[in-house]
Design a protein around this nucleic acid. Sequence first.
DNA 1: CACTTTGTTCAAAAAAACTTGAACAAATTA
DNA 2: TAATTTGTTCAAGTTTTTTTGAACAAAGTG
Lengths: 183, 183
Amino acid sequence: MTAFSVANISSSNQIDILDEWEIAVIDLFLNAANSFGLPKSYGQIYGLLFCRDQSLSMNEVMKLLEISKGSASQGLRALRQLGAVSSVFEPGDRKERFVAEIRLRKLVGGFLREQADPHLDKGVGRLKQIKSLINDLEDVDVRKRGIRRHEILSGWHRQMSRLLPWVKMIVGKSDRLPQKSSD
Amino acid sequence: MTAFSVANISSSNQIDILDEWEIAVIDLFLNAANSFGLPKSYGQIYGLLFCRDQSLSMNEVMKLLEISKGSASQGLRALRQLGAVSSVFEPGDRKERFVAEIRLRKLVGGFLREQADPHLDKGVGRLKQIKSLINDLEDVDVRKRGIRRHEILSGWHRQMSRLLPWVKMIVGKSDRLPQKSSD
DNA sequence: CACTTTGTTCAAAAAAACTTGAACAAATTA
DNA sequence: TAATTTGTTCAAGTTTTTTTGAACAAAGTG
């Protein structure tokens, strides 16, 4: 769950080799992706772009991370969909190049939009279905129990819906510089 | 990702058979567990307990859900650890019985405590390690870039830390009854 | 003590998730 | 048009995660 081959020691400004600190950052994002339920390769790709000032092509991503074409293609697409990377086209160059979005509010916003919102939406339908199953019940006590449960679930659903805008808002605050890197 | 065998039609107050609506609720939690990165069986177990008024023993959980001893044992332990179920002992009965915690703030709090907090803690160490790798860099431009990235990561870390208390707080508000089940 | 009940552990099996790479398509160039 | 570059798709392979069930421990019972 860690791992990578070694990198260059004397850190010249090489952009086609991974620096040691970059490997560590990439590994950080690998783990983060994992715990957000995203494939590790997405984390690696984002981590790499996060480290770089210059945009990278899909090919460069593949080679630097030693991942397959398929992973790179799918990963970059998904990350763009999430709003975590965006693509740029250098004039007179046919290929797409990618850069990382580093504004936390954008990252969080995209993640919530793509992951949380759909779940909440599906939830509405599921709750309706459960409701109708419960309404069909003959036994009064069981129906009462069912109704109570449906109320609880509806309440949760409502609360989660109320929460999301706050999260986006709170994370948005002071997305700017951290004060000082106090070691 | 759905599935279950059928249940009783004429819903008498049977507590050793799954009602159709209960199957639907269990399936809801199965999916929810999944998208929170927890094993499906945890979701099933929680969902079952959520539906019931009476506490259930591990054996009853196993039989009702048709899952193995191992899954039931591990699942119940993990859920208790998360604060999502608690155990009760009926007097004069040796075996442990379980009930679901239904207060959303408790559920969210437990989840954040067990899943988010540890990640943030590990993050501190990782950031330190990255910092030191960056400090070792010879190349001035690369070091500058590294420092900038470290600052960004530190800022994110700080923001996530600030966010969690708010989440617990906002979810806590009005954990009581939903107003009306408006179909 | 022998026997039953309750619950844990963990190696092996099964299932799910992720990655790979070859085949394909589209656009560009010679 | 043939050859090249860039990127997508997806079946098959690999890795990781989850589940199972047999062996074991602990505690009560007769």
